[in-house]
């Protein structure tokens, strides 16, 4: 009985880990792809305290909030879809290892890409 309960808790934890890792992958992908594509986004004008929805341009308008919002939405959608998928197909050790590797690689790639882009613009 206790063993069954532990098994079910482990399964739930594995599903949670897998689905949130898929969400983290979606977050990291949208975080770098959306600004690169120049999609319309929520922009904030700090000088007039106004929000606009437009394509980002150089200048005082801030696009960081909008792209962050896109990434958070991608995380939530990715995690929700993965959670639903995992009811049919339980994640095993291999799929968990793939998900963690993908999430960490994407996050580190994003950080490296932004560091490279920003630092190379300075020199």
């Amino acid at each position: 009985m206790i063993e069954n309960e532990n098994d079910s808790q482990n399964q739930r934890a594995a599903r949670l880990a897998w689905s949130t890792l898929v969400g983290a992958c979606a977050f990291a992908m949208v975080y770098v792809i959306a600004p690169a594509w120049g999609v319309p986004v929520l922009l904030y004008d700090p000088n007039h305290r106004l929000f606009h929805f437009a394509t980002p341009r150089a200048g005082p308008m801030m696009s960081y909030y909008g792209f962050l919002l896109y990434s958070v939405i991608a995380f939530l959608i990715g995690a929700a879809v993965a959670w639903l998928v995992s009811t049919r197909r339980r994640p095993n050790a291999e799929s968990l290892a793939t998900a963690i590797a993908a999430a960490l690689c994407l996050v580190l790639l994003d950080a490296t890409y932004y560091a490279w882009r920003l630092l190379s613009a300075v020199h």
Partner: peptide, 21 residues
């Protein structure tokens, strides 16, 4: 980029889990 990683780590920390998790 630390936000999703720490959210996932914290969610996992709150649950009993097997060694791989």
């Amino acid at each position: 980029l630390a936000v999703p990683l720490l959210i996932v780590a914290s969610l996992l920390a709150r649950r009993p889990a097997a060694k791989d998790v």
